[in-house]
Every structure is written in C-alpha cells, then in structure tokens.
Computed example of a mutant assay.
Amino acid sequence: MSVSDGLVVFLCIVVAGIVVAGAAALHRVVANHEFTEELPQPSNAQQSYMRVVRSRKWPLFHVDERLPPSTMTSSV
C-alpha cells in the first residue's frame, strides 16, 4: 500500500500552511509590543521646516501657516 504522489504534495502544502500560520501567530504575539508603541512626534522646528519645503516645492497649493494641532489650545 503506497501513498500517491498527489497525496504527498497535498500533505506538504497543508503542513507548510500550518507552519506559516503558526509562525504568523507567534510573531503577532511576540512582536505586538513593537507595533503598538507610539511613533515619535516631530518637533516644532521640523514641522516648520517641512511647511517651508512644501510651500517652496508646490507653490500652487496653499500651505497654511498654522500651529501644529498638538500645540493649539481650545477656546471652548
């Protein structure tokens, strides 16, 4: 009683899929902390510089010289 070639290929594909799914699940659990950390916010000087660069590069677009949202105060 021998196993057909098609069955061997199918079993290899199934085992490979299980290994990939298990590795993805393990990566999600282990690396979860890395992806949930907040990205560092750019400084006000960097935001100002990027506004100047954008206004030079695209003069047709109006670049508003407002304060970044993190420094704006609410009057409500």
Rank of each mutant, 00 (worst) to 15 (best):
L11A: 11
T71V: 13
H33R: 15
V9N: 05
S55K: 12
S48A: 14
A16C: 02
E34Y: 06
V76D: 15
S75Y: 09
P59G: 03
G22Q: 02
P40D: 11
P68N: 01
W58R: 15
L39D: 09
P68V: 01
T73Y: 06
S74Q: 08
S75A: 10
I13L: 14
H62L: 13
R54F: 07
K57E: 10
L7T: 15
N44M: 03
A45M: 04
A45K: 08
V14W: 04
V29S: 07
F61A: 12
S48H: 13
V8L: 09
P42M: 13
S74L: 07
L39S: 08
C12T: 03
C12F: 04
N44Q: 05
N44S: 08
V30R: 08
V8Y: 00
L7V: 13
D5Y: 02
E38A: 13
Y49R: 11
S70Q: 10
T73N: 07
V20Q: 05
S55W: 01
N32S: 15
R28P: 00
H33W: 11
E37L: 14
L39P: 05
M1E: 10
P69H: 04
L67K: 01
Q41F: 03
M1Q: 09
F61I: 06
Q41V: 12
V19H: 02
A21G: 14
V76F: 11
E65M: 13
Q46F: 10
I13V: 14
A24T: 14
E37H: 06
S43F: 01
D5G: 06
A25K: 05
M50H: 02
N44V: 09
P40E: 14
P69D: 09
P59M: 00
I13M: 06
P42C: 02
S48C: 02
V15N: 02
V15L: 14
F35H: 12
Q47A: 09
S74F: 04
I13A: 15
A25Q: 04
L39Q: 06
K57D: 06
I18T: 09
V30C: 04
Y49N: 10
G6F: 03
R51E: 03
P69C: 01
L7H: 13
S75N: 11
M1H: 07
S74T: 12
R66S: 14
I18D: 01
D64E: 13
G17S: 12
K57Q: 09
V15M: 10
G17N: 12
L26E: 01
V76L: 15
S74D: 15
D64R: 13
V15S: 07
W58N: 15
Q47D: 06
V63F: 01
V9C: 05
F61H: 12
N32H: 15
M1S: 12
F35K: 11
L26M: 07
V19G: 05
D64P: 04
E34Q: 07
S43H: 02
R51M: 10
H33Q: 09
M1K: 08
